[in-house]
């Protein structure tokens, strides 16, 4: 008996060594999301509605091509050929932007640099479960502080492609879920991608109305959050000029706006059903608005730490 236990103790480190770490899983996922050819039927679930979509990715003549289509409501598609993403929507002219992925299915960092996420999140290997008829390995992104939400991703154990991605609020309640219902790995690029690669898409728009922003600075930001964009543009819809700053920690995106205060009082804070928090603070005759899928307390603190250099 004692010998058996001893053998067990000696063997266990080896059996663990064979298991991949959460980090390895995520690196494999990032690689797969960039390299693999696949078709994924996906549903996105937010508090009170479900959005079905289909996503295809493949390689045509050495070019990476992908296609996203929302299946319900007015047609909404996006096509990516190399580093140009074109959005095709019913109510407006197609336009292209420069990006190396179509935004809207998985968070950008899942296909990008995983190491960036380590500043704000701890990766923990979770259990296994069956999703879309496939075996999935769960990996948790546990927030290192209370300034952001936790999330968890399930990876297909065969292809390492993400099968499900959940965002949970601080009370561990589900805010948003992206779940694959069918995943097909492809050997050949599908026809639609070959056609898309040949099509002449509009040129990348030059955001002419984007001017240099003021020299904004934050005296405090949660660990891992960086300023990615700072500009001056007009708000969509109401065309009000705003100073704009974008922050991200890889999973959560925060937008900060500085605008002239409106005559109408704005609510100090609100949370939308899909988990976007919004905080409004009036400073003199300006109003600072912060939005993002983070707790409102985080936004409040960020807004208060905003200064001009």
């Amino acid at each position: 008996m004692r010998l058996f236990l001893l053998a067990l103790i000696l063997l266990s480190p080896f059996s663990f060594a064979q298991e991949m770490s959460a980090n390895d899983w995520l690196k494999n996922m990032s690689q797969s999301l960039t390299d693999k050819q696949f078709k994924a039927s996906v549903v996105q679930i937010q508090a009170d509605h479900i959005r079905p979509l289909v996503f295809l990715q493949g390689k045509v003549d050495g070019k990476s091509v992908s296609y996203l289509e929302y299946l319900n409501g007015p047609p909404k598609n996006a096509v990516k050929v190399d580093n140009k993403v074109t959005f095709l929507e019913l109510d407006q002219q197609p336009y292209s932007i420069k990006a190396n992925r179509i935004q809207g299915v998985w968070p950008a960092s899942l296909s990008g640099n995983i190491a960036k996420l380590e500043q704000g999140y701890q990766f923990v290997l979770g259990g296994r479960s069956r999703i879309a008829g496939r075996a999935g390995q769960m990996i948790r992104f546990i927030a290192k502080d209370e300034f952001r939400y936790d999330s968890q991703v399930w990876l297909d154990m065969e292809t390492f492609l993400p099968l499900r991605y959940d965002t949970l609020n601080r009370d561990k309640q589900l805010l948003e879920q992206t779940m694959v219902v069918e995943l097909l790995e492809l050997n050949e690029p599908p026809k639609i991608l070959i056609e898309a690669s040949k099509h002449d898409w509009p040129a990348v728009i030059n955001p002419t109305d984007r001017k240099e922003a003021q020299n904004w600075q934050f005296t405090w930001l949660p660990q891992g959050f960086d300023m990615v964009v700072a500009d001056n543009h007009r708000l969509i819809g109401i065309h009000e000029p705003v100073e704009y700053i974008a922050l991200t920690d890889g999973l959560a995106n925060i937008s900060i706006y500085v605008a002239r205060a409106s005559d109408n009082p704005m609510p100090e804070e609100l949370v939308t059903r899909n988990g976007i928090s919004m905080v409004v603070e009036k400073v003199g005759n300006a109003e600072i608005v912060a939005l993002g899928k983070v707790p409102t307390e985080t936004l409040e603190r960020i807004v208060r730490s905003l200064t001009l250099k």
Partner: peptide, 14 residues
């Protein structure tokens, strides 16, 4: 504001 926030994420993805 919400629409712009979401649009910015699309525009900033690159």
């Amino acid at each position: 504001y919400i629409q712009d926030h979401m649009l910015q994420q699309r525009l900033n993805s690159g």
